[in-house]
Design a protein around this nucleic acid. Sequence first.
DNA 1: ATGTTTAATAGGTAAAACTTATAAAGATTT
DNA 2: AAATCTTTATAAGTTTTACCTATTAAACAT
Lengths: 302, 302
Amino acid sequence: MELRQLQYTLQIAEERNFSRAADKLHIAQPSLSQQLSKLERELGVKLFQRNTSTVELTYAGASFIEHARKIMDAVEQLRQEMDDISQLRAGRVVIGSMPITGSHLLPYVLPAFKEAYPDIQVALLEDTSLNLEKLTAGGGTDLSLLSLPLQEPTLTYEPIGEEIIDLAVPPQHPLASFEASPGGVALEQLKDEPFIVLKKGQGFRKLTIDLCRSAGFEPNIVFESNNIETVQSLVAAGMGITLVPRFIARSKRSELIPVYIPLSSSPSRTLVIAYRRGRYLSKAAEAFIETFKSTLTQRYSS
Amino acid sequence: MELRQLQYTLQIAEERNFSRAADKLHIAQPSLSQQLSKLERELGVKLFQRNTSTVELTYAGASFIEHARKIMDAVEQLRQEMDDISQLRAGRVVIGSMPITGSHLLPYVLPAFKEAYPDIQVALLEDTSLNLEKLTAGGGTDLSLLSLPLQEPTLTYEPIGEEIIDLAVPPQHPLASFEASPGGVALEQLKDEPFIVLKKGQGFRKLTIDLCRSAGFEPNIVFESNNIETVQSLVAAGMGITLVPRFIARSKRSELIPVYIPLSSSPSRTLVIAYRRGRYLSKAAEAFIETFKSTLTQRYSS
DNA sequence: ATGTTTAATAGGTAAAACTTATAAAGATTT
DNA sequence: AAATCTTTATAAGTTTTACCTATTAAACAT
């Protein structure tokens, strides 16, 4: 039994005439006779009582078309669904992000994506960089927002932007006067300052420490937190200083606002969307990357 | 899209391995790869994320097999239904019969048929011979129980039995003494008797009159009824005499019982099952004819 | 490193679905 | 009543396609 045969049978039942049905099906009439005969032989049942003048359904035929209609409907539904997915009218992307990036970048990207592809589900998953890499490598997420360098060799990535890293100090701090300074502050000036940083496992902690080391000193860590917001609040309260990605500063609206000062060396981190090397990227995932890139350049390049 | 491809895809999804799936499908592995590729190309969607070591469903693939399973189930159901019909485990026969035959023959046939083919619906339709012929010729019934000769030329028939015609007289009638007589009574002896017959349109009325005429007299009709039972009751009550098909006499159990006497010429009528000439007979209808014949010979031939 | 197992590709064959041409049977028209 | 039109079925030939075997390329295990 073939779908073609179901379709042919339905058409014959509708037209009650082989020649007309064949025309509508864009095949020659003999093909139709052949296919129906073959089907009837296979089923062991006559579907139509026919002679040269009339074509009418048998009991078996009536039962057949009833079922056949349901089947063809289901096939049409399947086809429609596949078409929706390929046209990005449906789908699902699981995205992993670091808490820092997730809360400060995605709020701009997700609405744009939802508008462009309203029927694609987006699932969000926050974790530390290290865990995200493992998850993505194992297929737990389709994409992850990370910053270079990556540890997992099975991951590949697309860069989506450079993020300048600024210094954050308490308002009453001597360096606070450099806020508007075009040159900014040199990292070396911070070697005796008390540092507040993120806890281990978070990518940005490692970046902060690496920057200090490359400036020739080991940072004096006086406090650690899992939350970059907490870190900033502590800084604003005068507990110490820290480095922060610039994107985060902008969205800070709370009571305790530190002073953000550019660093003279303009250090930066590269944000990437990482995914499994060699793995097929779903169209939904591809669309997400595209939206992400265009949204960010639109927002931050100007 | 082909049913074959749905089946193949389901098998791959089950095995998550092309070679093993190909084995189970009894095809070579390259065929499976080809068919899946072709399907994916047609749909514009990758169904499986695969490399040499792993085969896993994509989002689209998961959605596909969900639909595909339903479709294959429906196809299986259709196949089963057609098989049931061809194996006579389902179907429907519409049978027409004359009131005489219907009430006296079918009660023996229908139970046997129901037992042999419990899931075939039987619809019964009683009418006069003439109307039945028209109905059957027009497709209103699949089969009709009639007696020869038929008027409609588009009908053909299968004989199912000869039915002897007896004379029925009141118990106090002079001829009643011939009840046990081996030779019976000659039709000619009835030429001055008052006849009670069926009304016009009923086949047996015509037969009765024709028999009298061929015996050389016109019957003296003193009463007419649509119902053979009424006719017999009137005879038993002494209102006149009549001719009756022998099968009917046997089932008479009421108060008013006429005396049945064989006729010396042993006239008979041929009962037939009639159906449209050249028309495809459903297996259910064929089965009914078969059951009818075997039931009657079993009952009356001994 | 080597051997094994995986899916994909290439080339050839056989099945089958399609085509055109024609026949047979009813219905319709002259 | 003969002829014509219209219907489905059959025959023969062509094209498409699903399949096979052989082979390749990549990943994994030993």
